[in-house]
C-alpha cells in the first residue's frame, strides 16, 4: 500500500478541531479527489499529507513507514507537492525553478549538476513545455505556472504527487487540461491526491473521492458510489442534480436554476 492514513485529526492550538477520524488508503496509480466547502479543511488535510503539518492524532504511513520515522528529505523523495499557484518574489528561470525539485537528493552545500538538469529537461518535455525553459517563472501564464510546478514535482521522482486546488485561477480550458494531465500522471504510476471545488473533476478522474463535510468528517470511496446528490447538496448547501448526459456519456453535477 502506497499511502495509509490512520484515524488522523487536526486541531489548531489543540482547541479548534478542523477534521477528525479521517481514514483511507491509496495505491500506486490511484487518484483521490478531495471535495469540500470553503473552510472545511481540504488544504489543512493536504498539508498534513505533505508533511507540512503534523496531525494532532493518528498517523500517516507511506510505503508502510510512519512519517514520524522519516526525515524531511526521505518524505520529500517519496511525495511531491504542488502548491496553489502563487507568484513568487524572484523570477527564477523555469529551468532553475524546476531543478529545485532535486533538493531532497542534495546536501546542504550541494549545487545541481548536469544530471539534475537532464532530469529537468525530461520533465519539461513530458509536460510539453520545453519552450518555456528559459523564461522567468514570474512572466508565464497561470496555466503554465501549474505545468512548471508539476514538472518540479516530477523531478522529485516521488511515488505520490499532491496538488492543492490545481484548477484554481485557471480558465475552463486550462482546468480540463489540468484534469487530463492528472489522469496521465496516475497512468504513469504516481498515486495522486488533489483538492478541488468542482465535483465534475472527481467524475472525470474516475478514481476515489473524499468529501469533507462541515463537521470535519470525510466520506471516502470510489467516486461512482460515494459522489451522491444528497451528500453534495448537504455539503454545499445548494440545490443540485447529478445527471447522466447522453451527449458526453458521463454524469455531470449541475446546479438547479437560481431564484432570487
Amino acid at each position: 500500500m502506497m499511502l495509509e492514513v490512520k484515524d488522523i485529526s487536526y486541531a489548531y492550538d489543540n482547541e479548534r478541531t478542523i477534521f477528525s477520524n479521517i481514514e483511507f488508503t491509496l495505491n500506486k496509480g490511484e487518484i483521490l479527489t478531495i471535495l469540500g466547502p470553503n473552510g472545511s479543511g481540504k488544504t489543512t488535510l493536504l498539508n498534513c499529507l505533505a508533511n507540512i503539518f503534523v496531525p494532532s492524532s493518528g498517523e500517516i504511513l507511506i510505503k508502510g513507514v510512519p512519517f514520524a520515522e522519516l526525515s524531511l528529505r526521505q518524505v520529500a523523495q517519496m511525495i511531491g507537492y504542488v502548491p496553489q499557484i502563487h507568484i513568487p518574489v524572484y523570477g527564477f528561470n523555469v529551468r532553475d525553478f524546476v531543478v529545485m525539485g532535486r533538493a531532497p537528493y542534495m546536501g546542504m552545500f550541494a549545487k545541481p549538476k548536469k544530471s539534475d538538469y537532464d532530469l529537468v529537461d525530461d520533465a519539461l518535455e513530458m509536460m510539453e513545455i520545453t519552450h518555456l525553459a528559459d523564461r522567468p517563472y514570474t512572466e508565464i501564464s497561470g496555466g503554465e505556472m501549474q505545468q512548471v510546478t508539476i514538472a518540479r514535482a516530477i523531478v522529485q521522482q516521488p511515488d505520490m504527487i499532491l496538488l492543492d486546488e490545481p484548477t484554481a485561477h485557471l480558465d475552463y480550458g486550462n482546468q480540463l487540461r489540468t484534469v487530463k494531465m492528472i489522469k496521465k500522471l496516475a497512468q504513469e504510476g504516481y498515486a495522486v491526491i488533489m483538492t478541488t471545488h468542482m465535483p465534475d473533476h472527481a467524475v472525470l478522474l474516475e478514481g476515489k473521492v473524499g468529501i469533507l463535510d462541515r463537521s470535519g468528517h470525510m466520506r471516502v470511496g470510489p467516486t461512482s458510489e460515494t459522489l451522491k446528490e444528497d451528500v453534495l447538496r448537504e455539503v454545499y448547501r445548494v440545490e443540485l442534480k447529478l445527471v447522466y448526459i447522453d451527449e458526453v456519456g458521463r454524469i455531470a453535477c449541475v446546479a438547479s436554476g437560481i431564484d432570487v
Binding site: I52, G80, V89, M100, F109
Partner: peptide, 23 residues
C-alpha cells in the same frame, strides 16, 4: 557561498521549502 543554492529554496517560502525536504 557553499550553501548558495539552498538560498534559492528558502526564497520559495517555508512550506514549499519543507516539502522539498529542506530543514
Amino acid at each position: 557561498m557553499a550553501m548558495r543554492w539552498k538560498l534559492n529554496i528558502l526564497s520559495l517560502g517555508e512550506n514549499e521549502a519543507r516539502t522539498l525536504g529542506t530543514n
